[in-house]
């Protein structure tokens, strides 16, 4: 991956001819971490612009970001449904068998009166990933098909809000630990959802690395 690094002291570039897009919107990019503002550099596809002041990534440019992200998110949607419908572990002890799905874990906690923990688990393993997948489909699908939908702006804003709360990769480690803890006690049988989970994590990680929010925001604006 090529890295494009600005010259020294590019912290605040005053651009002679500002391209005004609308009221007061300038063709400038800002660093999310240190607020340095620079004129938008040309970055080749697959490259990234790095802030010369604080070293964080300003943005990445991806070739065909909408199409690639859309393809991966569609795959993620299918995997997410499978991961939710089928049990991911079965527990066998003295002839008795119990299964657990994503939802049943939350449900059992709720039944034990642990409402706060149940809600936290539901938020981080079901609601936030579902929002990420569903809203991205809702935003990117119409962009790909070149028509505008009402609510795309709000939807894409919520993709940003829900991002820190989606923790399915952490949940996978939780499953591993639970399997080890139970292995002396009983027979543990992995279910279909476990495989879907294992695939969902790299697919979603790929989708978020292909997603170029700046391009999506501009396309939403263009379609209006």
């Amino acid at each position: 991956m090529s890295r494009l690094i600005f010259g020294d002291k590019a912290a605040f570039v005053i651009v002679p001819d500002l391209k005004l897009i609308g009221d007061g919107i300038l063709q400038l990019v800002g660093c999310h971490d240190c607020d340095a503002v620079v004129e938008e550099p040309n970055v080749p596809d697959g490259g990234a612009a790095i802030c010369s002041r604080c070293g964080s990534t300003l943005f990445r440019r991806q070739r065909r970001t909408v199409e690639f992200t859309l393809a991966l998110v569609s795959a993620a949607a299918i995997l997410f449904v499978v991961a939710n419908v089928y049990p991911f572990l079965s527990f066998q002890m003295q002839g008795q068998v119990t299964h657990t799905t994503l939802g049943s874990g939350t449900f059992s906690l709720w039944e034990q009166g642990q409402h706060a923990v149940a809600l936290l688990v539901a938020l981080t393993t079901i609601v936030a990933p579902a929002l990420q997948i569903g809203l991205l489909l809702f935003v990117l699908g119409p962009i790909h098909l070149q028509f505008s939908v009402p609510g795309a702006v709000t939807a894409f804003r919520w993709v940003e809000y829900s991002r820190p709360w989606s923790m399915i990769e952490v949940f996978l480690i939780g499953i591993l630990v639970a399997v080890v803890k139970l292995s002396d006690m009983a027979n543990i049988i992995p279910g279909l959802a476990l495989g879907a989970f294992g695939l969902l994590i790299p697919v979603l990680a790929g989708a978020s690395s292909f997603l170029d929010p700046e391009v999506v925001w501009r396309k939403i604006g263009d379609l209006k």
Partner: peptide, 15 residues
Amino acid sequence: MVDVYVVTILVALVH
């Protein structure tokens, strides 16, 4: 969050 998830899974599986 790992430990919270471990508790959730154990609660759901072992009853």
